[in-house]
Design a protein around this nucleic acid. Structure first.
Lengths: 229, 229
DNA sequence: CAGTTTCGAAACTTGACAGTTTCGAAACTC
DNA sequence: GAGTTTCGAAACTGTCAAGTTTCGAAACTG
């Protein structure tokens, strides 16, 4: 949060109309929408104002600059996050990792990644913004993976010597890179090749059932079937 | 390459001063320098012209727009690339992967990643540019990893059933993400945690010597020393 | 009610920069 | 040498959008 630091402290009641808190939410929400649609480069304050049904003066009364607004908007989306409380619990790590991706969670991730992609143009300008994006999109996702892996360790499913810290970042980071540079959307095939081709093997899990997923030999992009000839 | 398509074909000799081919190189080189220093967002044609010791007219005689110039510059840096011909050959995959990073290759990668980071602002605008960046920075690196892994398969060091296609992309992509979003430079510690914590374990290699690398217990962000207890 | 602040809307100011054009000098063809 | 194209430098044009100001109406305080 970095709104214009108003009179929040010691204040003997001020005259005049009060600020409408609903405007804050509208503006932040509009910012995220525009961000996802046209990207930060083409995001103009007029566009945001129009979308929020607000005047530019109202925006500049709360944020000092476009960059600050965007940073705040990105941080704002950290809410509605993956609940570290109720993570999937299917009994196997593979099931858990895939379970993270079932319901609306899929399109929510897609949305976040889209916003991050649009953010690209500002990432190189502000370290602060880059941190916010990382913290809002990749970090919580990695945290979830970390928690799931930790549980798998306790359960005895995987070795305690595995480098869980590093491995938990693979899927989120690769997904972000993929979205950012390669411009490909979230796809199950990608997830599967990451989980089955990288994460699980690295954790020492080489045999796993593939229940109810694409009966036609998954095309993870090169996983050979036959071992040494 | 997308210079203004001049009279290259059927041409009966033209009058007038000839184009100085050395200007092309100067301009492209200057573009890359500026790109690495201030990023594409703050890259102006005047800046490039000044750096190259050229006039803007000279630039616009060869490229139609800033974007085209940048795309060409990025493609231009594909030269001086990792030679797929003479890759390191140390006898072990780990040695080979690390060997890719010894000499000036380290700072060259650093430079490329810096350029890519600066490029971020345009990545979201042009798919073409994003492809060029991916092709110039990440792709060749991944190709090298792929070749090294393939050799390890033939040598019998790793199983042929491993998803080499996916695994060869891990290090380059993660390095790019790291540089792009987290703004951290290339570091040996990062490489080690990727190779020892992810890639090699995923290939089924769990025990490896750590010869002549940081006698003081490497702090690779979590790679534990002892394998399964 | 008098005074103050907020609101949305719209007009305005300003700086930055992509792309053009102009200029005088050099380099080339015939 | 006449005509043409290139060169670097610098002046010029045009657009776009960030940020500011103004306005009339609403909302609040005392």
């Amino acid at each position: 949060m970095t709104p214009i630091d108003d009179d929040s402290v010691v204040e003997p009641t001020q005259p005049g109309r009060k600020r409408d808190p609903s405007r804050d939410a509208s503006i932040l929400e509009a910012t995220l929408e525009v961000l996802a649609e046209v990207g930060a480069a083409s995001l103009t304050m007029d566009l945001v104002a129009a979308r929020a049904g607000a005047g530019k003066a109202t925006i500049y009364r709360r944020w000092t600059s476009k960059t600050q607004l965007v940073i705040d908007a990105v941080a704002h989306m950290k809410r509605n996050q993956v609940d570290l409380e109720h993570l999937p619990d299917t009994g196997t790590l593979r099931g858990d990792l895939l379970g993270l991706f079932k319901p609306q969670s899929m399109e929510e991730s897609e949305r976040r990644l889209k916003i991050m992609t649009g953010l690209a143009s500002l990432l190189s300008q502000d370290r602060e913004l880059a941190d916010a994006a990382n913290g809002a999109v990749v970090k919580p996702w990695a945290d979830a993976h970390f928690a799931l892996m930790q549980r798998a360790v306790l359960r005895g499913e995987i070795s305690a010597s595995a480098d869980i810290q590093t491995l938990s970042q693979i899927v989120p980071s690769m997904a972000a890179y993929r979205s950012l540079v390669q411009r490909k959307p979230m796809e199950l095939a990608f997830l599967l090749s990451m989980i089955d081709g990288v994460v699980l093997p690295a954790l020492g899990i080489h045999r796993f059932d593939v229940p109810s997923v694409t009966p036609t030999r998954r095309g993870a992009g090169g996983a050979k079937r036959r071992p040494k000839p």
